[in-house]
Nucleic acid binder design. Structure first.
Lengths: 197, 197
DNA sequence: TGTATCGGATACATGAACGTATTGGATAGG
DNA sequence: CCTATCCAATACGTTCATGTATCCGATACA
């Protein structure tokens, strides 16, 4: 069955609306009606495109996760390819998009994934993708990385970066201070990726 | 109004049941009936003690958070008071209780707090309490800590410990591998709290 | 032991969200 | 321009969770 232009437009508007509803309200109390109203439709539009709200939620996650992955990859390439670690950290964190709304939705998704193996693998896939991008970037750092002795290789380092990111995320969700989050992330990454002089 | 023995017992059983329901199911889809059934009551018992499910949820968080704080404090005192950092890390992480069910409930609470300033302060208070305990423990480490240069003082170090814990939490929620989480947490903490030789 | 209060059970009414079946307007194709 | 298909709107009926009002057994207290 062919996807008509109209249908695609409707789906897109539903996805956007879903984000605007899920971010402030959370998935739990969100109703199908809420999303439809936010998109300027009635429930008929929803049931013509999805069968359950979960389905829409998971679609939304996939779409936004792809966007974010692209954005992070872009930030990673901001500093010159052969720059020293300190500069890579500094400039990457500076251009990194830290969207609290997205973090809220992503954490909601994390909780679902933590209780559902299928979703867990989907999320793990997304995380692996990001981790891999970080790994590749670290591998290209000038003059062989000098990692702390407890971080054996580039893979562990990439994992550490993700963990630091997750840690900062939690703090950001609580205090909404993006500037502080950036500074804090820089500190953590520096400690994790460089050998202190 | 006096609190009778019977009432206290009922509340306690409701709290226990709430944990057993919220952990696997999450707060969103949990119904008042679910909790009451799990506790062996009907809804009458609930409405006689609470007015809303949020109220019970928040009470549950406070209760369990206090338990966890005590448990963490205990773990922190496992290693000898004047032991070197490496040993403090090793033994603390080894005895640390990593209860996935609690992490699930706590993350649920985190999401609520992220959308509700009042709850956010409650959670921040709990985090401060833990951070403070870590700080005090670090301060007692033998021979002045040699922190990485990007971590200026013991306060920053304590914050870093919390961030690492949060980062590992996310991973643990996804893969349920407590052993790996422990090893990973040890690595991260070592990198964050010691000056690599 | 008798009595008054307390607390959980039960029954009922209400409202909200859901899913479906049907309609009618829009749109694409000839 | 006509027609067939598509898709969102509408209007049901149903289910489910909720909150309340009442009842009755249990418990505390004299």
């Amino acid at each position: 069955m062919r996807v008509t232009k109209r249908r695609a437009e409707t789906k897109a508007r539903l996805l956007d609306a879903a984000f605007q509803v899920f971010a402030p309200k959370g998935f739990g109390p969100a109703r199908i009606d809420d999303v439809c109203a936010a998109a300027g439709y009635t429930r008929g539009a929803f049931y013509s495109n999805y069968t359950t709200l979960d389905e829409l939620f998971f679609d939304l996650y996939d779409e936004r996760a792809a966007l974010i992955a692209a954005q992070v990859t872009e930030s990673l390439t901001a500093p010159p390819l052969d720059a020293p670690v300190e500069e890579v950290i500094e400039r990457t964190v500076a251009t990194l998009l830290l969207d609290r709304d997205w973090l809220l939705v992503k954490t909601d998704f994390l909780l679902h994934a933590a209780r559902n193996p299928t979703l867990a693998r989907r999320l793990a896939g997304h995380r692996d993708q990001l981790r891999q991008a970080v790994r590749d970037r670290l591998a290209s750092v000038r003059g062989q990385l000098a990692l702390p002795s407890s971080i054996p290789d580039v893979d562990a380092a990439a994992k550490a970066v993700v963990a630091a990111y997750d840690g900062v995320t939690v703090q950001l969700l609580l205090d909404s201070d993006v500037t502080a989050a950036r500074a804090w992330l820089t500190q953590l990454l520096t400690a994790l990726l460089t050998r202190s002089s």
